Simulated scan of single mutants.
Amino acid sequence: MAEEINKNQLLEQKKAVFDMIVEGPKLTGEAEAKEDDQYSLDTERGAQLYASFSDDELLELLRGSAQYLGHSPSQGEVHWILRAYLKARFKNWPRALRAAGLSRSAGRGGMPSEQMSQKNEEYQQMLNQIRGMAEQLGRIPHPSELPEICRKLKKRYRTWGEVLAAAGVEEAVAVHLQKEENLKDDELRMLQELRTLAERLNRPPLRGEVEQSLRESLLRRFGSWRNALYQIDLEPVRRITPFVNAPLQREKDKQRATHRQELYDCHYRLLKLDPQTQADLALVRKLAQQLGHAPGRREVPSEVRMRLQRACGSWSNALFQLGLQEKRGRFRQR
């Protein structure tokens, strides 16, 4: 019952903060009303409140400020709470503006709202083209396949990974998955070899872990690595943020980067869980239910966290086994 009351109190406080943010800053500069101090990231209440806001909620508040002002807001033109929460979540103000689809030319001298809306529409059309290409190919496209679009998107996005996330490419790629019927004996044999390797690794194999002739045969027959794994009810290992450091345009005379084989920044399902890992994950699930969010590393007993990191490859992938996502951003002082 106490937990329910706490949640209700948190919702009430969130609504109060939401209303304050919508009203906008009442004081100039870095000054703030003393009664607002309780919502600072330096306080336990402020930290809990910050965690309760999703990325979309914070960005929508920022967009609302831009619409009211008629331009991308500068830091001093929004309530200090919103400013602090956005900078904690997105690292700095320009990145928050970019995530909201706003011009980074902030302040009254920035891009007018009407022009900004037109730009956003143009960017969305380009993102739709990328998503459409992913659906057609059945895989994630490489930036070298869309040079003109990449050149234009450089003004808004820093990496190809950010573009893929904005375009929703992961979902688009999954459209082409289908189980093949009436497979020949040699095709069944190939899939059995793939399944045997997966069982030995206790996870879906990476492309580079499969013998070249087998890999090439699977790709020819099933069209993509994702679809080959789908035939044996597996999903591919995927980067938490694919192409996270890949530039939108490669420098001249610089070779195309090869796919990395490390697993520390990946999500993948473990095929089998030993009893200890099952017990540890059950503890984390129970803790998540009590907290109302995915527990952070410091919120879990260190011995449990270390065991799960060894078993699952990383803390993020341990949470992935439970369908939980590690919270983005760190609390920072405003």
Score class of each variant (00 low, 15 high):
Glu12Trp: 07
Lys15Met: 10
Val17Gln: 04
Val17Asn: 04
Ile21Cys: 08
Pro25Gln: 07
Leu27Cys: 02
Glu32Ala: 13
Lys34Asp: 12
Tyr39Glu: 06
Glu44Tyr: 05
Leu49Asn: 11
Ala51Thr: 08
Ser54Phe: 03
Ser54Ile: 01
Asp56Cys: 00
Leu58Arg: 03
Glu60Thr: 15
Arg63Cys: 03
Arg63Glu: 03
Ser65His: 11
Gln67Lys: 15
Leu69Ser: 00
Gly70Ile: 03
Trp80Ile: 15
Leu82His: 12
Arg98Val: 09
Ala99Val: 04
Ala100Cys: 05
Ser105Asp: 08
Ala106His: 06
Gly107Arg: 10
Pro112Trp: 00
Ser113Asn: 06
Gln115Val: 11
Glu121Met: 08
Glu122Tyr: 08
Glu122Val: 11
Gln124Ser: 12
Gly132Gln: 09
Met133Ser: 10
Glu145Met: 12
Glu148Ser: 14
Ile149Gly: 02
Cys150Ala: 15
Arg156Asp: 04
Arg158Trp: 00
Leu164Asn: 01
Leu164His: 01
Ala166Gln: 06
His176Lys: 12
Asp185Asn: 01
Met190Ile: 00
Pro205Leu: 08
Ser224Pro: 07
Gln231Arg: 06
Gln231Lys: 07
Ile232Trp: 07
Pro236His: 11
Pro247Tyr: 06
Arg250Thr: 14
Glu251Cys: 00
Glu251Lys: 12
Thr258Glu: 06
Arg269Phe: 00
Arg269Glu: 10
Pro275Gly: 02
Gln278Gly: 11
Glu303Lys: 15
Glu303Asp: 09
Arg310Ala: 13
Phe320Gln: 09
Gln321Met: 12
Arg332Cys: 10
